[in-house]
Simulated assay, not measured.
Amino acid sequence: DEIENFMNDLNDDTFDARIASGGGRMQITMDRYEANWPMVEEGWKIHVLGEGRKFKSATEAIETYRKETGVVDQDLPGFVIVDGEEPVGTIEDGDSVILFNFRGDRAQEICKAFDEEEFDKFDRVRKPDVKFAGMLQYDADLNIPKKYLTEPPKIKYTLTEQLVKEGINEYAISETQKYGHVTYFWNGNRSEKFDDTLETYVEIPSDVIPFEQRPWMKSAEITDQLCEAITSGEYQFLRTNYPNGDMVGHTGNLEATIIGVEAVDLALGRVLKAVDQANAILLITADHGNADEMYDKPKPDEAVHKAKTSHTLNKVPFIVYNADIELKQGDDLGLSNIAATVCQLLDVKPNEHWNPSLIEEAK
C-alpha cells in the first residue's frame, strides 16, 4: 500500500505509474535451472497477456490471498490489476521492459522468453516487440540477456580455476534447486566448465511439488551417487549442496523443516561412512540459514508470528571431519577463507588473492 500510495501521489495527466501484476517467486515467473517452465509460462500470462485473477490493487490481491489461504509472500499466486475489467498494464509492442533482478539464477528463463525468436518451452501466444534489458547480463557465456544496463561482475580467481591448474579432478552434484549453486555460481557466474576433463557435473532432477509436501527432497538420491563417487577414488575434490534447510525453511512450515533437517542428518551419516571408507576429509558448512530462524517477531498490532522468508544473518558452522588440524577462531573469518583451506588440505598452493586458510599453523 505504501508503494501504491506513493505512485498515486506522483501521477497526473502526463504520468501514470502503477503496479500492474504480481505474484510470489515460488509460484510464477522466477523458476531457476529449468526445473519448472510452467512457472515461467504462468508469469508470462500474468505479466504480458494480463491473464489471471483480477484485483483492483496489489494491496487487495495480497490481503485477499493471505486471508483465503494464509500464504506467505513467496508463495502468492499470480494476480492482475484491472481498471473495470481491463488489465492496466499488459506488455505491448513498443514497450520497454527492464528486469531489475541482480542475481542471475531466477532471471534467466524469463529473459529467454523475451529474447529468443525460436522459443519452444511454452506457447507465448504473442511475443510483443519490446526493448528488453536486464539489470546486468546474468550469463555472459550464453549471452543472457542480450541487452543489459550494467556490466556484470567479473569474478576471477575461483577455487575451480586454481584446482584445474593443479590437475585436481572435481565432482559436483546436487538436485535441480541447487545444481547451479555448485556449478554456475561456484565457478563465478559461469555456465561453462573450466576443464571438461577435470570437472564432472551431476544433476538430480528436483520434484515439481511444494517443498513442505516432500521435505526430504532428493537428499537420498544425492547421497547415493555422492557416496559412490567418494569411494570410487576417481576424484580429489567433491562438493554438494543439500537444499532442504533453505528451501523448506523458506516455507515457514516448522514441522516440514524439522523433517527436512533430519533428512540431511541421515544423509550426512551415510556420507561420513563413505568418507571413512575412502580415508577422506569432510568439510561441512552453509552459505546462510533459513531453518535456524523461521519466524519474524510479531509487530505490536500483529497477533501471530509471520514466516521469515528472508535469509537469516546468524553465523554458519564450519566443521572439519577426519583431519588432525586445529581451526582458527575469530569474528573476521568466514566463507571467503574456505578456498584456501581446501587447497591446504589438498596440498595445493592457494591463490595469492584469497583470504587465508582457516587452519592454524603447527607450532
Rank of each mutant, 00 (worst) to 15 (best):
E4R: 00
F6K: 08
D13R: 06
D16I: 02
S21D: 07
R25Q: 09
E34F: 14
V40F: 03
K45R: 15
V48F: 01
K56E: 15
I62A: 12
D73E: 12
F79V: 03
E85A: 10
S96M: 14
F100R: 01
F102A: 12
G104E: 05
K112V: 02
D123G: 11
V125F: 01
R126N: 02
V130T: 04
D141E: 14
L142E: 15
N143C: 00
K146E: 10
K146C: 05
Y157I: 07
T158D: 07
T160S: 09
L163W: 01
S174Y: 04
Y179V: 10
F185I: 00
F185D: 00
G188F: 10
D196Y: 11
P205K: 05
L226T: 03
G233R: 06
N241F: 05
D246P: 13
D246T: 12
V248M: 07
H250A: 06
H250Q: 09
T251F: 07
N253D: 15
L254H: 01
A256S: 13
E262H: 14
K273D: 15
A278F: 01
G289E: 00
A291M: 00
E293M: 09
L313V: 14
N314K: 12
K315E: 15
F318K: 03
E326F: 14
K328E: 14
N337H: 10
D347C: 09
V348Y: 05
H353L: 03
P356H: 12
